[in-house]
Design a protein around this nucleic acid. Structure first.
Lengths: 145, 145
DNA sequence: CAGTATCCGGAGGGATACTG
DNA sequence: CAGTATCCCTCCGGATACTG
């Protein structure tokens, strides 16, 4: 289910950090279980780090920003997020799906249609995005010239 | 003052995105001026992207988290941030300094002492970090097992 | 349309050694 | 103590081609 190579790196004791910042949260939990560790201990003590674990990736915040306005198809999301390749967008969406932030609904039609929306957990990130929006606006006003 | 290599890449027309997500904000402005562009146009229209521009980097949020509690010396910051190399921490701090988020105070002593603190602009990011803290705590409570 | 598969360059991070 | 200076190499992300 999860990437063996990551587990390998975990076992080598070098990749806790990798998993923390770059890997999937679910992966992280599963691996911890495999090692018979209390998963709770594996959660970063700092809540800020927990949040970073899930949305520090390059495009995830922008994906959230756009999905907070409602469900979007893959191609719509790609356009609204900006200059991102399919591969990278897909990869980010898959991680967010596994992390429980995004819901992926496939409609078996021709041509296929896939709609992305936020789960409740994903929705609950709205205050963070809002804070960023507020700050960004404030910052721009101060740097207007 | 700013990295020529980045400017070079800008001129090659491939690096607007790089500068946006990975480079320094100040670099971005300077380069825009050099190209006789209205810098305002160069600012992302979306306030969320402006924010991302400044703190999307791996360690910057953690640096903010720690400096929000007060001034820290380099070594103290290194310890409190976690597993980060000198090179990377220095690099992040230099960027944040140029972006106007962090103040660097050098005391000409032996051994040398360098203290880092937040500027007013850096301080103003507190609501975002707080939102992350709140969300992370909430998330952990829901995933307690 | 919404992907997967593959290749590839280079940014960026770790490790180590050195210095004012 | 708080950094630079190198070396080295992972691996992220872009481009392209292909498919159900």
């Amino acid at each position: 289910m999860y990437d063996i190579s990551i587990q390998k790196k975990m076992e080598e004791g070098t990749i806790k950090f990798y998993s923390y910042l770059k890997g999937s949260f679910i992966d992280f939990i599963e691996i911890a279980k495999g090692k018979n560790m209390t998963t709770k201990r594996e959660l970063p003590a700092c809540p800020v780090e927990i949040t970073m674990m899930l949305i520090s990736d390059k495009w995830k915040v922008l994906i959230l920003r756009d999905l907070l306005n409602g469900t979007l198809r893959f191609s719509e999301l790609r356009r609204s997020v900006g200059n991102v390749s399919q591969k990278v967008l897909t990869s980010n969406l898959r991680q967010m799906e596994r992390d429980g932030l995004v819901h992926r609904e496939v409609y078996p039609e021709v041509p296929p249609r896939v709609e992305y929306s936020l789960t409740e957990v994903g929705e609950s990130l709205r205050p963070i995005i809002d804070a960023m929006k507020t700050w960004g606006n404030h910052y721009r006003n101060e740097h207007e010239f």
